[in-house]
Design a protein around this nucleic acid. Structure first.
Lengths: 149, 149
DNA sequence: TTAGTTGCAAATCGTTTGCATCAAG
DNA sequence: CTTGATGCAAACGATTTGCAACTAA
């Protein structure tokens, strides 16, 4: 059976077999527009009546991360990993400590700093991870009502 | 039995019982001078012939994190959590992707940026997490010898 | 005395693996 | 056909929990 999905070309380019599952997984991640967990992907596919095993989701993600098609990350207060399409554009996430929603923000304030650090420490800096925590507009409001400070 | 350890006062201040175990755990974290895992703490205590159960280490850490005496964090490529004494001074870690050693660096380049972001997004920014990845001096050398780029 | 702390064993959660089957190339 | 991809069940490592025994206050 010959399948063609929106990620067929990407998979081919990476030397990976173009399977229905890999396409659906990538489309699901893409479609959600924010970092998602393996389980979220799994449940999303299930809700679309796409039958797949959770371990296959993990396996697909593994190889896609290795090929740098997908980026894996973790956030504080969550024991599970998050996955997103590697857009190769440098951005960070704003994470709401209230509702745990993730809001991507463009740009990065660290380029200068990394050079500085490299000179100061002799470390060969290759990258970084930055997340900003706080309360989104809605949760900020809620906090106002329930807080007694 | 009345125990007095170096953290007796801290525990009392937080309304926690001053136990031998909590003192030893805090001393072990302090002594190691870098973020450590629950298991590392457990093994370290064991090597000093202090008999404690791993689950008690976790329980003590939980409450100490809640009381903000200890800070919990995770790093990429490790499934376990790291704990360190909350010095309440703002610093970040430089993590070697080669040997996985963690090097604390003082200071933080993000104060300005957070204000900016707060204005731009309406988010109530409360903090952030930043780690910088790269290769330490030793691993940089090794990379030179083994790499074929 | 009594509420908080511990040890122990079992449970849980996210993730990984071995193996037989299946499908893409 | 051949190798890589999948499903399934079982294993795994880190962490959490229920419960009975213990101990700091």
């Amino acid at each position: 059976m010959i399948e063609t999905g929106s990620y067929t070309e990407v998979l081919r380019r990476e030397g990976l077999r173009n399977t229905k599952h890999r396409n659906s997984i990538l489309e699901t991640i893409e479609g959600s527009g924010k970092p998602v967990t393996a389980e979220e992907i799994f449940l999303n596919l299930k809700s679309k009546n796409i039958s797949i095993n959770l371990s296959s989701v993990y396996r697909a993600l593994d190889i896609l991360v290795f090929k740098e098609v997908v980026v894996k990350s973790t956030i504080a207060d969550s024991s599970s990993a998050f996955f997103e399409i590697n857009k190769r554009e440098h951005k960070h996430n704003l994470i709401c400590s209230g509702c745990k929603k993730i809001f991507p923000v463009d740009g990065c304030p660290l380029e200068e700093y990394e050079k500085l650090l490299q000179d100061k420490t002799g470390f060969d800096v290759t990258g970084h991870r930055l997340e900003i925590y706080g309360y989104c507009h809605e949760c900020k409001e809620e906090k106002k009502y329930f807080s007694n400070e």
